[in-house]
């Protein structure tokens, strides 16, 4: 059965592996180039802590290099799971039903239960391995540019490309695609459904992730910017001198800024701070990276298990 699985799905397996190899080469090249760029400025090595070694010029250069690659894969957290769902998950059963080949596959002596278990197991395992490999590559590449600046917790896009998130998302998309195939018994509508489903799940979890833990609260005075750029902001509000939260403080007159200037907004903030107001921020500190990773992965793995169970139920119901 493993040979059968490999033979039937080798196109997806090889394409995905090829993509990961290309991406790996790109990241490797980019990181090597960035390293030599930094060592051009600091031939004796740089003081530990920051990727840019404290030089503004190097920071700008690294930023440009980082952004050039990041624009390439900024869409990966959403698009890759959607592709996995569409090309790994949806055809798994949709294509068998569509071509009638399920009647060939399920009338051999291998029981249907085992056929499905091997397919879901082998392909699900390959998908998880692929997701972990992606995460590993991104996690090795990013610190070259961002070490000491952020850990990838505050940016939800980066967060979903590191840790166990890609593996969990890929697995979920694969399981959803498999289930969609049993619903429509055709590949194309199953692909459409799984792409829509993955996108909907992603935006739901983005919204839900603020509640993975009770947020911390910081009351700021004199500034409205949290000193940790890696924190994930949940909400913010003004607090009047008596300690009550106010959405729209009336103590100061707020002028409208024109263009890119924020001078009037800053003047308004300074006025409020002078009046005794404070700015309360709720946020998740970056130490929660793994807690959030495992929470999200747990939700997705549980959903994957449920989808696989539903798939098995529909397949084993024997409806011809």
């Amino acid at each position: 059965m493993i040979w059968v699985t490999w033979r039937q799905h080798r196109a997806q397996l090889l394409t995905t592996a090829g993509f990961l190899v290309l991406l790996g080469l790109l990241l490797l090249g980019s990181a090597t180039e960035a390293r030599s760029y930094v060592s051009g400025y600091f031939p004796d090595g740089c003081p530990a802590g920051f990727a840019h070694c404290g030089s503004v010029e190097v920071a700008v250069g690294l930023g440009e290099r980082y952004d050039a690659v990041y624009t390439l894969f900024g869409w990966m957290p959403l698009v890759l799971p959607a592709l996995i769902g569409a090309f790994w998950g949806a055809p798994l059963l949709g294509r068998e039903y569509e071509r009638g080949t399920h009647r060939l596959a399920w009338t051999q002596s291998v029981p249907v239960r085992r056929w499905l278990a091997v397919k879901l197991g082998v392909l699900g395992g390959a998908v998880v391995a692929g997701g972990l490999l992606l995460s590993l590559m991104v996690s090795l590449w990013r610190p070259v540019f961002r070490e000491g600046i952020d850990s990838g917790f505050g940016n939800i896009g980066v967060f979903n490309m590191t840790g166990v998130a890609p593996a969990a998302w890929w697995l979920y998309a694969f399981a959803a695609g498999g289930f969609a195939g049993t619903l429509f018994r055709r590949t194309l509508p199953a692909m459409a459904l799984v792409v829509a489903g993955v996108a909907a799940t992603m935006f739901t979890l983005f919204a839900l992730s603020d509640h993975y833990a009770p947020p911390d609260r910081a009351v700021l005075s004199g500034t409205v910017v949290l000193d940790d750029p890696d924190a994930r902001l949940v909400g913010a509000t003004w607090v009047d001198p008596s300690g009550r939260a106010v959405d729209d403080p009336a103590a100061c007159e707020r002028g409208l800024d024109t263009g890119r200037s924020s001078a009037k907004a800053e003047a308004w903030q300074d006025c409020l701070f002078a009046e005794g107001y404070a700015y309360a921020v709720t946020y998740h500190p970056p130490e929660r990276f793994w807690r959030f990773q495992w929470t999200e992965a747990g939700i997705l793995v549980a959903a994957s298990a449920l989808l696989c169970a539903l798939t098995a139920r529909r397949v084993l119901r024997r409806r011809g």
Partner: peptide
């Protein structure tokens, strides 16, 4: 029981030899 369904479904991308291999490995 062995079954040949209507329209004789086969994995179209498999060679005939691979189809025989499919049969050997699933029976």
């Amino acid at each position: 029981a062995a079954f040949v369904a209507q329209d004789k479904p086969l994995y179209e991308s498999f060679t005939v030899g691979e189809l025989l291999e499919f049969g050997r490995r699933t029976n």
